[in-house]
Write a protein that binds this DNA or RNA. Structure first.
Length: 558
RNA sequence: UGGGGUGUAGCCAAGCGGUAAGGCAAUGGACUCUGACUCCAUCAUCCCUAGGUUCGAAUCCUAGCACCCCAGCCA
Protein backbone atom coordinates (compact mmCIF):
# COMPACT_ATOMS: atom_id res chain seq x y z
CA UNK A 1 0.00 0.00 0.00
CA UNK A 2 1.28 3.45 -0.89
CA UNK A 3 2.32 5.65 2.01
CA UNK A 4 -0.20 8.26 0.92
CA UNK A 5 -2.98 5.78 1.38
CA UNK A 6 -1.68 4.89 4.76
CA UNK A 7 -1.61 8.53 5.78
CA UNK A 8 -5.10 9.10 4.48
CA UNK A 9 -6.40 6.13 6.34
CA UNK A 10 -4.77 7.12 9.58
CA UNK A 11 -6.02 10.65 9.22
CA UNK A 12 -9.54 9.40 8.76
CA UNK A 13 -9.41 8.42 12.42
CA UNK A 14 -10.03 12.05 13.33
CA UNK A 15 -13.21 13.82 12.34
CA UNK A 16 -13.16 15.98 9.26
CA UNK A 17 -12.24 19.62 9.51
CA UNK A 18 -10.77 22.25 7.21
CA UNK A 19 -7.26 21.87 8.61
CA UNK A 20 -7.18 18.14 7.96
CA UNK A 21 -8.30 18.87 4.42
CA UNK A 22 -5.52 21.41 3.94
CA UNK A 23 -2.91 19.04 5.31
CA UNK A 24 -4.17 16.16 3.23
CA UNK A 25 -3.88 18.33 0.14
CA UNK A 26 -0.40 19.54 1.10
CA UNK A 27 0.78 15.99 1.61
CA UNK A 28 -0.86 14.74 -1.56
CA UNK A 29 0.57 17.56 -3.67
CA UNK A 30 4.02 17.06 -2.25
CA UNK A 31 4.15 20.58 -0.82
CA UNK A 32 5.26 18.93 2.41
CA UNK A 33 6.72 15.48 2.91
CA UNK A 34 5.57 15.53 6.52
CA UNK A 35 4.09 18.08 8.85
CA UNK A 36 5.36 19.95 11.89
CA UNK A 37 2.93 21.74 14.19
CA UNK A 38 3.38 23.43 17.51
CA UNK A 39 1.48 24.38 20.63
CA UNK A 40 2.81 27.77 21.74
CA UNK A 41 1.33 28.89 25.09
CA UNK A 42 2.54 31.99 26.87
CA UNK A 43 3.56 31.04 30.43
CA UNK A 44 1.43 33.70 32.07
CA UNK A 45 -1.30 31.47 33.46
CA UNK A 46 -2.52 27.92 33.73
CA UNK A 47 -3.80 26.02 30.73
CA UNK A 48 -7.57 25.69 30.38
CA UNK A 49 -10.00 23.60 28.37
CA UNK A 50 -9.67 26.05 25.48
CA UNK A 51 -5.96 25.27 25.33
CA UNK A 52 -6.87 21.59 25.37
CA UNK A 53 -8.68 22.16 22.09
CA UNK A 54 -5.50 23.60 20.61
CA UNK A 55 -3.29 20.90 22.14
CA UNK A 56 -5.48 18.10 20.83
CA UNK A 57 -5.61 19.79 17.44
CA UNK A 58 -1.88 20.35 17.05
CA UNK A 59 -0.63 17.16 18.66
CA UNK A 60 -3.51 15.20 17.14
CA UNK A 61 -2.73 16.40 13.62
CA UNK A 62 0.93 15.49 14.06
CA UNK A 63 0.00 12.07 15.42
CA UNK A 64 -2.57 11.31 12.72
CA UNK A 65 -0.41 12.41 9.81
CA UNK A 66 2.83 10.98 11.12
CA UNK A 67 4.43 14.36 11.81
CA UNK A 68 5.73 16.04 14.93
CA UNK A 69 4.41 18.65 17.31
CA UNK A 70 6.56 20.97 19.37
CA UNK A 71 5.77 22.47 22.74
CA UNK A 72 6.99 26.03 22.63
CA UNK A 73 6.82 28.38 25.57
CA UNK A 74 6.12 31.79 24.09
CA UNK A 75 8.13 33.62 26.70
CA UNK A 76 8.67 37.08 25.25
CA UNK A 77 7.28 39.14 28.11
CA UNK A 78 9.08 38.62 31.44
CA UNK A 79 6.84 41.17 33.10
CA UNK A 80 3.95 38.70 33.11
CA UNK A 81 5.53 35.31 32.89
CA UNK A 82 6.66 32.97 35.59
CA UNK A 83 8.38 29.63 36.16
CA UNK A 84 5.31 28.41 38.07
CA UNK A 85 3.33 28.70 34.85
CA UNK A 86 5.98 26.95 32.78
CA UNK A 87 5.90 23.99 35.16
CA UNK A 88 2.11 23.79 35.22
CA UNK A 89 1.90 23.99 31.41
CA UNK A 90 4.30 21.11 30.93
CA UNK A 91 2.44 19.07 33.52
CA UNK A 92 -0.91 19.72 31.91
CA UNK A 93 0.19 18.78 28.40
CA UNK A 94 1.69 15.55 29.70
CA UNK A 95 -1.37 14.80 31.81
CA UNK A 96 -3.56 15.25 28.74
CA UNK A 97 -1.53 12.48 27.20
CA UNK A 98 0.78 14.21 24.73
CA UNK A 99 4.50 13.97 24.32
CA UNK A 100 6.69 16.61 22.71
CA UNK A 101 9.70 14.30 22.72
CA UNK A 102 12.87 16.30 22.06
CA UNK A 103 10.88 19.30 21.04
CA UNK A 104 10.53 21.45 24.10
CA UNK A 105 11.39 24.94 22.92
CA UNK A 106 11.25 28.48 24.19
CA UNK A 107 10.83 31.57 22.07
CA UNK A 108 13.64 32.89 24.24
CA UNK A 109 15.96 30.23 22.78
CA UNK A 110 15.83 32.34 19.64
CA UNK A 111 16.56 35.74 21.16
CA UNK A 112 20.09 35.91 19.68
CA UNK A 113 18.87 35.02 16.18
CA UNK A 114 15.87 37.30 16.49
CA UNK A 115 18.16 40.14 17.51
CA UNK A 116 20.49 39.51 14.60
CA UNK A 117 17.56 39.52 12.19
CA UNK A 118 16.34 42.77 13.71
CA UNK A 119 19.70 44.38 12.95
CA UNK A 120 19.36 43.03 9.44
CA UNK A 121 16.00 44.72 9.04
CA UNK A 122 17.43 47.95 10.41
CA UNK A 123 20.23 47.60 7.85
CA UNK A 124 17.66 47.16 5.09
CA UNK A 125 16.01 50.36 6.18
CA UNK A 126 12.73 48.65 7.11
CA UNK A 127 13.04 49.02 10.89
CA UNK A 128 13.74 52.08 12.98
CA UNK A 129 14.15 53.21 16.55
CA UNK A 130 11.32 55.45 17.69
CA UNK A 131 11.50 57.82 20.66
CA UNK A 132 7.79 58.55 20.83
CA UNK A 133 6.16 57.86 24.17
CA UNK A 134 3.47 55.22 24.36
CA UNK A 135 0.79 57.90 24.50
CA UNK A 136 2.22 59.74 21.53
CA UNK A 137 2.45 56.56 19.58
CA UNK A 138 -1.19 55.87 20.22
CA UNK A 139 -2.12 59.31 18.98
CA UNK A 140 0.02 58.88 15.87
CA UNK A 141 -1.50 55.50 15.10
CA UNK A 142 -4.78 56.99 13.89
CA UNK A 143 -8.10 55.21 14.26
CA UNK A 144 -10.00 52.45 12.53
CA UNK A 145 -11.27 54.92 9.97
CA UNK A 146 -8.43 57.46 9.82
CA UNK A 147 -4.87 56.89 8.68
CA UNK A 148 -2.07 57.34 11.17
CA UNK A 149 0.77 59.85 11.02
CA UNK A 150 4.39 58.99 10.55
CA UNK A 151 6.64 59.41 13.56
CA UNK A 152 9.18 62.27 13.35
CA UNK A 153 11.85 59.64 14.09
CA UNK A 154 10.79 57.43 11.21
CA UNK A 155 13.48 58.55 8.80
CA UNK A 156 16.57 58.28 10.92
CA UNK A 157 19.61 56.96 9.10
CA UNK A 158 20.48 53.32 9.17
CA UNK A 159 23.63 54.15 11.13
CA UNK A 160 21.75 56.10 13.78
CA UNK A 161 19.11 53.37 14.06
CA UNK A 162 21.74 50.68 14.39
CA UNK A 163 23.60 52.65 17.03
CA UNK A 164 20.45 53.36 19.03
CA UNK A 165 19.19 49.80 18.74
CA UNK A 166 22.54 48.47 19.97
CA UNK A 167 22.42 50.88 22.88
CA UNK A 168 18.88 49.73 23.65
CA UNK A 169 20.21 46.23 23.82
CA UNK A 170 23.17 47.34 25.92
CA UNK A 171 20.86 48.80 28.55
CA UNK A 172 21.62 52.47 27.96
CA UNK A 173 17.98 53.49 28.09
CA UNK A 174 15.19 53.18 30.63
CA UNK A 175 12.03 51.14 30.12
CA UNK A 176 9.59 52.73 27.75
CA UNK A 177 11.97 55.35 26.40
CA UNK A 178 12.40 53.85 22.94
CA UNK A 179 11.19 50.97 20.80
CA UNK A 180 12.24 49.36 17.56
CA UNK A 181 9.48 49.50 14.96
CA UNK A 182 8.98 47.97 11.56
CA UNK A 183 8.65 50.57 8.83
CA UNK A 184 5.59 49.46 6.91
CA UNK A 185 2.63 51.76 6.33
CA UNK A 186 1.04 54.21 8.74
CA UNK A 187 -1.98 54.48 6.45
CA UNK A 188 -2.70 50.76 6.23
CA UNK A 189 -6.35 49.84 6.82
CA UNK A 190 -4.92 46.95 8.83
CA UNK A 191 -3.85 48.49 12.13
CA UNK A 192 -1.23 45.80 12.60
CA UNK A 193 0.71 47.13 9.65
CA UNK A 194 0.97 50.71 10.97
CA UNK A 195 4.64 50.39 11.90
CA UNK A 196 4.25 47.72 14.59
CA UNK A 197 6.61 47.61 17.54
CA UNK A 198 9.23 44.87 17.26
CA UNK A 199 11.22 45.37 20.45
CA UNK A 200 10.57 47.15 23.71
CA UNK A 201 12.87 47.82 26.64
CA UNK A 202 12.06 45.82 29.76
CA UNK A 203 14.58 45.69 32.58
CA UNK A 204 13.17 42.60 34.16
CA UNK A 205 14.70 39.18 34.90
CA UNK A 206 13.44 36.49 32.54
CA UNK A 207 12.57 33.02 33.87
CA UNK A 208 14.60 31.41 31.13
CA UNK A 209 17.33 33.87 30.10
CA UNK A 210 17.84 35.61 33.43
CA UNK A 211 19.30 39.08 32.95
CA UNK A 212 20.89 38.43 29.57
CA UNK A 213 18.45 40.76 27.87
CA UNK A 214 16.75 44.04 28.61
CA UNK A 215 14.97 44.30 25.27
CA UNK A 216 12.32 41.78 24.38
CA UNK A 217 10.65 41.01 21.04
CA UNK A 218 6.93 41.49 20.61
CA UNK A 219 4.74 38.53 19.72
CA UNK A 220 4.41 39.52 16.08
CA UNK A 221 8.13 39.74 15.59
CA UNK A 222 8.95 36.60 17.55
CA UNK A 223 6.27 34.18 16.55
CA UNK A 224 6.66 33.72 12.82
CA UNK A 225 10.42 33.62 13.03
CA UNK A 226 10.24 31.01 15.79
CA UNK A 227 7.97 28.95 13.55
CA UNK A 228 10.47 29.38 10.74
CA UNK A 229 13.44 28.31 12.82
CA UNK A 230 11.61 25.20 13.99
CA UNK A 231 10.50 24.30 10.50
CA UNK A 232 6.83 24.47 11.37
CA UNK A 233 4.71 23.64 8.32
CA UNK A 234 1.27 24.59 9.65
CA UNK A 235 1.15 27.35 12.23
CA UNK A 236 -2.26 27.07 13.76
CA UNK A 237 -3.65 29.83 15.95
CA UNK A 238 -6.98 31.34 16.90
CA UNK A 239 -9.13 33.68 14.84
CA UNK A 240 -8.14 36.91 16.51
CA UNK A 241 -4.71 36.57 14.93
CA UNK A 242 -6.10 36.57 11.44
CA UNK A 243 -5.38 40.29 11.05
CA UNK A 244 -1.82 39.57 12.09
CA UNK A 245 -1.19 37.16 9.25
CA UNK A 246 -0.10 39.88 6.79
CA UNK A 247 2.48 40.95 9.36
CA UNK A 248 3.52 37.36 10.01
CA UNK A 249 4.10 37.06 6.27
CA UNK A 250 5.82 40.45 6.00
CA UNK A 251 8.61 39.65 8.46
CA UNK A 252 9.31 36.27 6.91
CA UNK A 253 9.38 37.77 3.41
CA UNK A 254 11.68 40.62 4.44
CA UNK A 255 14.05 38.15 6.06
CA UNK A 256 13.93 35.73 3.11
CA UNK A 257 13.76 32.73 5.43
CA UNK A 258 11.65 29.58 5.40
CA UNK A 259 8.04 30.67 5.43
CA UNK A 260 5.49 28.56 7.31
CA UNK A 261 1.80 29.23 6.73
CA UNK A 262 -0.54 30.46 9.43
CA UNK A 263 -4.08 29.11 9.74
CA UNK A 264 -6.71 30.22 12.17
CA UNK A 265 -9.55 28.42 13.91
CA UNK A 266 -12.27 29.54 16.32
CA UNK A 267 -11.38 29.46 19.98
CA UNK A 268 -13.55 27.50 22.37
CA UNK A 269 -16.28 29.11 24.41
CA UNK A 270 -18.02 27.02 27.04
CA UNK A 271 -21.34 28.01 28.53
CA UNK A 272 -21.65 28.97 32.19
CA UNK A 273 -17.96 29.68 32.70
CA UNK A 274 -15.26 32.13 31.66
CA UNK A 275 -12.29 31.14 29.60
CA UNK A 276 -9.74 33.91 29.23
CA UNK A 277 -6.56 33.71 31.28
CA UNK A 278 -7.12 37.32 32.26
CA UNK A 279 -10.46 36.53 33.84
CA UNK A 280 -9.27 33.31 35.40
CA UNK A 281 -6.33 35.17 36.93
CA UNK A 282 -8.74 37.72 38.30
CA UNK A 283 -10.79 35.00 39.98
CA UNK A 284 -7.63 33.64 41.56
CA UNK A 285 -6.32 37.04 42.68
CA UNK A 286 -9.67 38.19 44.04
CA UNK A 287 -10.10 34.99 46.01
CA UNK A 288 -13.31 34.03 44.27
CA UNK A 289 -11.80 30.57 43.88
CA UNK A 290 -9.15 28.79 45.91
CA UNK A 291 -6.59 28.81 43.11
CA UNK A 292 -5.94 27.96 39.49
CA UNK A 293 -6.75 24.34 40.36
CA UNK A 294 -10.03 25.04 42.11
CA UNK A 295 -12.38 22.26 40.95
CA UNK A 296 -14.79 24.85 39.60
CA UNK A 297 -12.20 26.33 37.27
CA UNK A 298 -12.14 25.35 33.57
CA UNK A 299 -8.37 25.00 33.86
CA UNK A 300 -6.91 21.58 33.16
CA UNK A 301 -5.67 21.43 36.74
CA UNK A 302 -9.13 22.39 37.95
CA UNK A 303 -10.86 19.80 35.78
CA UNK A 304 -8.33 17.21 36.89
CA UNK A 305 -9.05 17.92 40.53
CA UNK A 306 -12.73 17.84 39.78
CA UNK A 307 -12.27 14.31 38.45
CA UNK A 308 -12.26 14.79 34.70
CA UNK A 309 -10.09 12.23 32.92
CA UNK A 310 -7.61 13.03 30.15
CA UNK A 311 -9.57 10.63 27.94
CA UNK A 312 -12.79 12.50 28.49
CA UNK A 313 -11.20 15.83 27.63
CA UNK A 314 -9.64 14.43 24.49
CA UNK A 315 -12.99 12.93 23.50
CA UNK A 316 -14.59 16.32 24.09
CA UNK A 317 -12.08 18.08 21.86
CA UNK A 318 -12.69 15.49 19.19
CA UNK A 319 -16.45 15.90 19.42
CA UNK A 320 -16.69 19.67 19.26
CA UNK A 321 -14.84 19.83 15.97
CA UNK A 322 -12.66 22.58 14.59
CA UNK A 323 -14.08 25.40 12.54
CA UNK A 324 -14.08 29.11 11.98
CA UNK A 325 -17.47 29.95 13.45
CA UNK A 326 -17.49 31.78 16.74
CA UNK A 327 -19.20 29.12 18.81
CA UNK A 328 -20.41 28.38 22.30
CA UNK A 329 -20.32 24.76 23.32
CA UNK A 330 -22.87 23.69 25.88
CA UNK A 331 -21.45 22.42 29.15
CA UNK A 332 -23.58 19.30 28.74
CA UNK A 333 -21.27 18.13 25.95
CA UNK A 334 -18.27 18.16 28.30
CA UNK A 335 -20.29 16.53 31.07
CA UNK A 336 -21.50 13.80 28.77
CA UNK A 337 -17.89 13.06 27.82
CA UNK A 338 -16.85 12.36 31.43
CA UNK A 339 -19.97 10.43 32.15
CA UNK A 340 -19.45 8.08 29.26
CA UNK A 341 -15.80 7.58 30.17
CA UNK A 342 -16.43 7.11 33.87
CA UNK A 343 -19.48 4.95 33.32
CA UNK A 344 -17.14 2.35 31.88
CA UNK A 345 -14.07 3.05 34.01
CA UNK A 346 -15.31 3.90 37.50
CA UNK A 347 -16.04 1.21 40.10
CA UNK A 348 -19.33 1.64 41.96
CA UNK A 349 -19.73 2.32 45.65
CA UNK A 350 -22.46 3.35 48.02
CA UNK A 351 -22.31 6.63 49.88
CA UNK A 352 -25.06 8.49 51.67
CA UNK A 353 -24.54 12.20 51.23
CA UNK A 354 -27.32 13.54 53.46
CA UNK A 355 -27.94 10.74 55.96
CA UNK A 356 -31.24 9.84 57.52
CA UNK A 357 -31.33 7.04 60.12
CA UNK A 358 -33.12 3.91 58.96
CA UNK A 359 -33.99 1.35 61.62
CA UNK A 360 -34.81 -2.19 60.57
CA UNK A 361 -37.13 -3.15 63.42
CA UNK A 362 -37.20 -6.88 62.90
CA UNK A 363 -33.47 -7.27 62.34
CA UNK A 364 -31.56 -8.60 65.36
CA UNK A 365 -29.76 -5.91 67.36
CA UNK A 366 -26.48 -7.79 67.67
CA UNK A 367 -26.35 -9.31 64.20
CA UNK A 368 -24.14 -8.06 61.38
CA UNK A 369 -23.85 -9.62 57.91
CA UNK A 370 -21.80 -8.99 54.83
CA UNK A 371 -23.38 -8.86 51.40
CA UNK A 372 -21.64 -9.08 48.09
CA UNK A 373 -21.85 -6.16 45.68
CA UNK A 374 -20.62 -5.95 42.11
CA UNK A 375 -17.92 -3.37 41.57
CA UNK A 376 -19.37 -2.76 38.14
CA UNK A 377 -22.70 -4.08 36.89
CA UNK A 378 -21.54 -4.38 33.28
CA UNK A 379 -17.99 -5.55 34.01
CA UNK A 380 -17.94 -8.70 36.13
CA UNK A 381 -14.16 -8.88 35.68
CA UNK A 382 -13.90 -5.99 38.10
CA UNK A 383 -15.03 -8.35 40.84
CA UNK A 384 -17.10 -7.89 43.93
CA UNK A 385 -16.67 -6.43 47.38
CA UNK A 386 -18.57 -7.08 50.57
CA UNK A 387 -20.73 -4.57 52.34
CA UNK A 388 -21.65 -4.80 56.00
CA UNK A 389 -25.28 -4.68 57.05
CA UNK A 390 -26.86 -4.31 60.48
CA UNK A 391 -30.03 -3.17 62.18
CA UNK A 392 -29.33 0.50 61.96
CA UNK A 393 -28.53 2.06 58.60
CA UNK A 394 -28.36 5.39 56.90
CA UNK A 395 -30.41 6.20 53.86
CA UNK A 396 -30.48 9.30 51.68
CA UNK A 397 -32.80 12.01 53.02
CA UNK A 398 -34.10 12.61 49.49
CA UNK A 399 -35.13 8.98 49.24
CA UNK A 400 -37.86 9.41 51.84
CA UNK A 401 -41.05 11.43 51.57
CA UNK A 402 -43.64 11.37 54.31
CA UNK A 403 -46.20 12.52 51.78
CA UNK A 404 -44.96 11.15 48.49
CA UNK A 405 -45.59 13.12 45.32
CA UNK A 406 -47.03 11.41 42.29
CA UNK A 407 -44.50 9.16 40.61
CA UNK A 408 -42.22 8.89 43.65
CA UNK A 409 -40.60 5.46 43.54
CA UNK A 410 -38.67 5.59 46.78
CA UNK A 411 -39.61 5.12 50.41
CA UNK A 412 -42.76 6.50 52.02
CA UNK A 413 -44.90 5.35 54.95
CA UNK A 414 -46.29 1.91 54.11
CA UNK A 415 -44.40 1.55 50.85
CA UNK A 416 -41.73 -0.90 49.85
CA UNK A 417 -38.32 -0.40 48.37
CA UNK A 418 -35.24 -2.55 47.81
CA UNK A 419 -32.03 -1.82 49.65
CA UNK A 420 -29.49 -2.35 46.91
CA UNK A 421 -27.71 -5.71 47.21
CA UNK A 422 -29.69 -6.49 50.39
CA UNK A 423 -33.36 -6.81 51.29
CA UNK A 424 -36.70 -5.39 50.39
CA UNK A 425 -38.00 -3.28 53.25
CA UNK A 426 -41.35 -1.77 54.12
CA UNK A 427 -41.63 1.54 55.91
CA UNK A 428 -43.47 1.13 59.22
CA UNK A 429 -43.17 4.61 60.68
CA UNK A 430 -41.07 7.65 61.34
CA UNK A 431 -39.53 9.46 64.30
CA UNK A 432 -39.63 13.22 64.49
CA UNK A 433 -38.16 15.92 66.67
CA UNK A 434 -40.19 18.66 68.41
CA UNK A 435 -40.27 20.78 65.27
CA UNK A 436 -41.67 17.96 63.19
CA UNK A 437 -38.53 17.13 61.24
CA UNK A 438 -38.17 13.44 60.47
CA UNK A 439 -35.15 12.16 62.40
CA UNK A 440 -35.43 8.46 61.60
CA UNK A 441 -37.38 6.09 59.43
CA UNK A 442 -38.49 2.72 60.77
CA UNK A 443 -39.03 -0.32 58.61
CA UNK A 444 -39.26 -4.09 58.54
CA UNK A 445 -37.37 -6.39 56.23
CA UNK A 446 -38.16 -9.65 54.51
CA UNK A 447 -35.28 -12.07 54.76
CA UNK A 448 -36.48 -14.08 51.73
CA UNK A 449 -35.90 -11.10 49.47
CA UNK A 450 -32.14 -10.98 49.95
CA UNK A 451 -30.33 -10.58 46.65
CA UNK A 452 -29.97 -14.12 45.35
CA UNK A 453 -32.54 -15.39 47.83
CA UNK A 454 -35.82 -17.24 47.17
CA UNK A 455 -38.01 -14.11 46.92
CA UNK A 456 -35.37 -11.91 45.38
CA UNK A 457 -37.33 -11.48 42.18
CA UNK A 458 -40.25 -9.77 43.80
CA UNK A 459 -40.80 -6.49 42.04
CA UNK A 460 -40.70 -3.22 43.89
CA UNK A 461 -40.82 0.19 42.29
CA UNK A 462 -37.60 1.48 43.70
CA UNK A 463 -34.07 0.62 44.74
CA UNK A 464 -32.16 2.81 47.15
CA UNK A 465 -28.58 2.88 48.40
CA UNK A 466 -27.68 2.68 52.08
CA UNK A 467 -24.75 2.39 54.49
CA UNK A 468 -24.46 0.54 57.77
CA UNK A 469 -24.48 3.01 60.65
CA UNK A 470 -22.21 0.77 62.65
CA UNK A 471 -19.62 0.22 59.93
CA UNK A 472 -19.84 3.22 57.66
CA UNK A 473 -17.08 5.79 57.55
CA UNK A 474 -17.52 9.51 57.59
CA UNK A 475 -16.00 11.58 54.80
CA UNK A 476 -16.18 15.10 53.45
CA UNK A 477 -17.89 15.59 50.14
CA UNK A 478 -17.72 18.67 47.99
CA UNK A 479 -20.42 19.41 45.49
CA UNK A 480 -19.73 21.86 42.71
CA UNK A 481 -21.94 23.78 40.39
CA UNK A 482 -21.43 26.16 37.48
CA UNK A 483 -19.19 29.15 38.13
CA UNK A 484 -21.32 31.65 36.23
CA UNK A 485 -25.08 31.97 36.40
CA UNK A 486 -25.71 32.88 32.77
CA UNK A 487 -24.93 30.77 29.74
CA UNK A 488 -23.00 33.30 27.67
CA UNK A 489 -21.25 35.73 30.01
CA UNK A 490 -19.81 38.76 28.27
CA UNK A 491 -18.97 42.34 29.04
CA UNK A 492 -17.19 43.94 31.96
CA UNK A 493 -19.74 43.03 34.61
CA UNK A 494 -19.11 39.31 34.37
CA UNK A 495 -18.04 39.24 38.01
CA UNK A 496 -21.58 40.13 39.03
CA UNK A 497 -22.70 36.94 37.30
CA UNK A 498 -20.67 34.65 39.58
CA UNK A 499 -22.78 31.84 41.01
CA UNK A 500 -22.84 32.34 44.80
CA UNK A 501 -23.81 28.68 45.24
CA UNK A 502 -21.09 27.11 43.17
CA UNK A 503 -19.83 25.04 46.09
CA UNK A 504 -21.61 23.03 48.73
CA UNK A 505 -19.44 21.26 51.26
CA UNK A 506 -21.00 18.30 53.05
CA UNK A 507 -19.37 17.15 56.27
CA UNK A 508 -21.76 14.46 57.42
CA UNK A 509 -21.68 12.02 54.54
CA UNK A 510 -21.43 8.33 55.43
CA UNK A 511 -19.87 5.75 53.13
CA UNK A 512 -19.27 2.07 52.86
CA UNK A 513 -16.02 1.15 54.67
CA UNK A 514 -14.12 0.12 51.52
CA UNK A 515 -13.89 3.79 50.61
CA UNK A 516 -11.53 4.52 53.49
CA UNK A 517 -8.77 3.05 51.36
CA UNK A 518 -9.50 5.30 48.37
CA UNK A 519 -6.37 6.91 46.97
CA UNK A 520 -5.93 10.47 45.74
CA UNK A 521 -7.42 10.98 42.28
CA UNK A 522 -9.22 7.64 42.43
CA UNK A 523 -12.68 7.89 40.87
CA UNK A 524 -15.93 6.19 41.79
CA UNK A 525 -19.52 6.20 40.87
CA UNK A 526 -21.55 6.65 44.02
CA UNK A 527 -24.58 4.71 42.92
CA UNK A 528 -27.63 6.73 41.97
CA UNK A 529 -25.75 9.97 42.57
CA UNK A 530 -22.82 10.70 40.37
CA UNK A 531 -19.13 10.38 39.78
CA UNK A 532 -16.75 11.40 42.52
CA UNK A 533 -13.00 11.81 42.66
CA UNK A 534 -10.74 11.73 45.69
CA UNK A 535 -9.31 15.23 46.02
CA UNK A 536 -5.63 15.15 45.22
CA UNK A 537 -4.79 17.98 47.56
CA UNK A 538 -6.93 17.96 50.69
CA UNK A 539 -7.32 14.23 51.29
CA UNK A 540 -5.38 12.53 54.07
CA UNK A 541 -4.45 8.86 54.28
CA UNK A 542 -7.58 6.99 55.40
CA UNK A 543 -9.51 10.26 55.29
CA UNK A 544 -10.46 10.95 51.69
CA UNK A 545 -12.23 14.08 50.55
CA UNK A 546 -14.53 13.49 47.59
CA UNK A 547 -15.19 16.00 44.85
CA UNK A 548 -18.28 15.50 42.78
CA UNK A 549 -17.22 15.45 39.15
CA UNK A 550 -20.70 15.33 37.67
CA UNK A 551 -24.08 13.96 38.66
CA UNK A 552 -25.63 10.94 37.02
CA UNK A 553 -28.29 11.79 34.49
CA UNK A 554 -31.55 12.06 36.35
CA UNK A 555 -34.71 11.82 34.30
CA UNK A 556 -36.78 11.99 37.48
CA UNK A 557 -35.39 15.34 38.63
CA UNK A 558 -37.16 16.99 35.74
C1' U B 1 -18.56 55.10 8.23
C1' G B 2 -11.70 51.53 7.37
C1' G B 3 -9.89 46.44 7.30
C1' G B 4 -10.46 41.20 8.34
C1' G B 5 -13.91 37.17 9.29
C1' U B 6 -18.51 34.15 10.02
C1' G B 7 -23.72 32.78 8.85
C1' U B 8 -26.50 24.65 7.93
C1' A B 9 -31.81 22.29 13.86
C1' G B 10 -31.88 24.64 20.94
C1' C B 11 -25.93 23.98 20.91
C1' C B 12 -21.75 22.20 17.94
C1' A B 13 -20.77 20.21 13.01
C1' A B 14 -20.09 17.34 8.02
C1' G B 15 -21.12 18.78 3.20
C1' C B 16 -16.86 21.40 -2.02
C1' G B 17 -23.16 21.35 -8.48
C1' G B 18 -26.75 15.63 -8.05
C1' U B 19 -31.28 16.14 -4.22
C1' A B 20 -29.21 17.79 4.14
C1' A B 21 -23.76 12.81 7.97
C1' G B 22 -22.75 12.61 13.12
C1' G B 23 -22.60 14.31 18.37
C1' C B 24 -24.96 17.01 22.54
C1' A B 25 -29.86 18.55 24.05
C1' A B 26 -35.12 17.24 23.70
C1' U B 27 -39.38 13.84 23.20
C1' G B 28 -41.79 8.89 23.20
C1' G B 29 -40.97 3.68 24.20
C1' A B 30 -38.27 -1.11 25.77
C1' C B 31 -35.05 -3.06 29.51
C1' U B 32 -33.31 -2.54 34.56
C1' C B 33 -31.74 -4.84 42.15
C1' U B 34 -28.42 2.44 40.07
C1' G B 35 -35.32 6.87 38.06
C1' A B 36 -27.88 5.15 35.83
C1' C B 37 -26.17 2.28 31.66
C1' U B 38 -27.98 0.00 27.11
C1' C B 39 -31.51 -0.30 23.16
C1' C B 40 -35.37 1.43 19.63
C1' A B 41 -38.04 5.56 17.54
C1' U B 42 -38.96 10.88 16.57
C1' C B 43 -36.26 15.47 15.79
C1' A B 44 -33.99 20.89 8.94
C1' U B 45 -39.12 19.73 2.11
C1' C B 46 -34.46 22.76 4.04
C1' C B 47 -29.06 25.39 4.62
C1' C B 48 -29.24 34.31 7.08
C1' U B 49 -32.51 37.13 3.21
C1' A B 50 -33.76 38.45 -1.89
C1' G B 51 -32.79 37.86 -6.83
C1' G B 52 -29.97 35.21 -10.77
C1' U B 53 -27.18 31.03 -13.52
C1' U B 54 -28.31 25.66 -14.20
C1' C B 55 -31.98 19.88 -16.16
C1' G B 56 -30.45 20.31 -11.05
C1' A B 57 -27.74 25.06 -5.94
C1' A B 58 -26.47 24.66 1.12
C1' U B 59 -22.71 24.40 -2.66
C1' C B 60 -21.68 29.18 -8.47
C1' C B 61 -22.99 34.80 -9.34
C1' U B 62 -25.21 39.60 -7.59
C1' A B 63 -27.29 42.64 -3.87
C1' G B 64 -28.58 43.02 1.07
C1' C B 65 -28.92 41.78 6.46
C1' A B 66 -26.91 39.97 11.16
C1' C B 67 -23.00 38.84 14.32
C1' C B 68 -17.56 38.54 15.72
C1' C B 69 -12.32 40.54 15.66
C1' C B 70 -8.66 44.87 15.11
C1' A B 71 -6.68 51.50 17.36
C1' G B 72 -1.13 47.20 24.11
C1' C B 73 5.82 49.30 24.27
C1' C B 74 -0.09 41.89 25.78
C1' A B 75 -0.23 37.19 23.46
Amino acid sequence: MAPENHITETAAAGSANFLRNIIQDDLASGKHASIVTRFPPEPNGYLHIGHAKSICLNFGLARDFGGECHLRLDDTNPAREDQEYIDSIKGSVRWLGFDWGEHLHHASDYFPQLYQWAEELVGKGVAYVDDLTAEEMRAYRGTLTEAGKESPYRNRSVEENLELFRRMRAGDFPDGSRVLRAKIDMASPNMNLRDPVMYRIVHEPHPHTGDAWCIYPMYDYAHGQSDSIEGITHSICTLEFEDHRPLYDWFLDQLCVYHPRQYEFARLNLTYTVMSKRKLLQLVRDGDVTGWDDPRMPTLDGLRRRGYTPDSIRAFCEQIGVGRNGSWIEMSVLEECVRSDLNVAAPRAMAVLRPLRLIVENYPEELAEEFSAANHPQRPELGVRSIPFCRELYMERDDFMEVPVKGFKRLAPGSEVRLRYAFIIRCTGVEKDESGVVTAVRCSYDRETLTGGPAADRKVKGVIHWVSARHGIQADVRLYDRLITVSNPSGDDWKSLLNPDSTEFLTGAVMEPSLAAARPEERFQFERQGYFCVDGKDSLPGKPVFNRTVTLRDSWAK
